[in-house]
């Protein structure tokens, strides 16, 4: 197993304020890492930093060569404008292949094939011609994951993916992510729902500007940070 991302005492921030301070952690190939923490604890900033949209203001961030070449698949938080966007599922998924293209104005057969197999993998092949805005929240998330897998199938970063989903769709979603992980996709998921992901994650990072905890879910249950955050559910 190789290490995909290494953070050593990394700070991320805007202008003169750091939102993430002194973070040391690793993402190994095949990991299922969940980043938890309260609102404003620096989770989204960390995601931006890992995607390369924000330079570290301190420390060293090392991204494995193979990952730098293919990039990281990304599932951003959904915006209001997207929910009624007139686009077919296929158009959305295909746009994931954009990073492979440089200046070529059209997609190749290979890229179209990639989009098809991505749709297949997520079991939404029959939705190919459907309109994105007419899908349920859960189906929309599947489409966006298919798009991210078009960019790369090595690693996915999911930013608050379950926001706005109903409980059964959430369970569905978790099953899907777990399956992808078992098929070899490294997952980094930012979430509020600690209790929901504890049983399937392989690593937990609890962020509160600084890393309050980084380790396995079993250790997290016993840790001070974990007890505080999980407190409600333990009684």
């Amino acid at each position: 197993m190789s290490t995909l991302i290494t953070c050593e005492h990394v700070d991320f921030g805007y202008e003169n304020q750091d939102a993430v301070i002194d973070l040391t952690m690793k993402v190994e190939e095949g990991d299922y890492l969940c980043v938890v923490g309260a609102n404003g604890s620096g989770k989204s900033t960390l995601v931006k930093g890992l995607l390369g949209l924000l330079r570290p203001t301190g420390g060293t961030l090392t991204v494995a060569e193979e990952l730098r070449r293919t990039g990281i698949g990304y599932l951003p938080q959904q915006t209001e404008a997207q929910r009624d966007f007139p686009a077919s599922v296929y158009e959305v998924v295909l746009s994931g292949a954009l990073s492979r293209r440089g200046f070529r104005p059209f997609y190749t057969a290979e890229e179209r094939g990639l989009a098809d197999s991505s749709l297949e993998k997520l079991g939404i092949r029959d939705l190919k011609k459907h309109c994105y805005r007419e899908l349920s929240g859960g189906q929309q998330q599947r489409v966006l994951i298919a798009r991210a897998l078009c960019a790369t199938s090595r690693m996915l970063i999911l930013d608050e993916p379950i926001t706005g989903l109903d409980p059964s769709a959430i369970q569905d979603f978790y099953r899907l992510v777990r399956r992808l992980n078992q098929e070899g996709v490294t997952i980094l998921m930012v979430t509020h729902d600690v209790a929901g992901v504890l049983s399937q994650a392989t690593r937990i990072l609890h962020l509160q500007q600084r890393a309050l905890f980084f380790g396995t879910p079993e250790d997290y249950r016993g840790s001070e940070a974990g007890r505080m955050f999980l407190g409600g559910e333990r009684q």
């Binding site: 995607l51 949209l53 990039g71 951003p76 686009a87 746009s95 994931g96 954009l98 990073s99």
Partner: peptide, 17 residues
């Protein structure tokens, strides 16, 4: 295709370069 990507999802487009 880039216009589509930028219109549909700026954050994703940015992340893919």
């Amino acid at each position: 295709h880039k216009i589509f990507a930028v219109t549909f999802d700026e954050s994703f487009a940015k992340a893919t370069g």
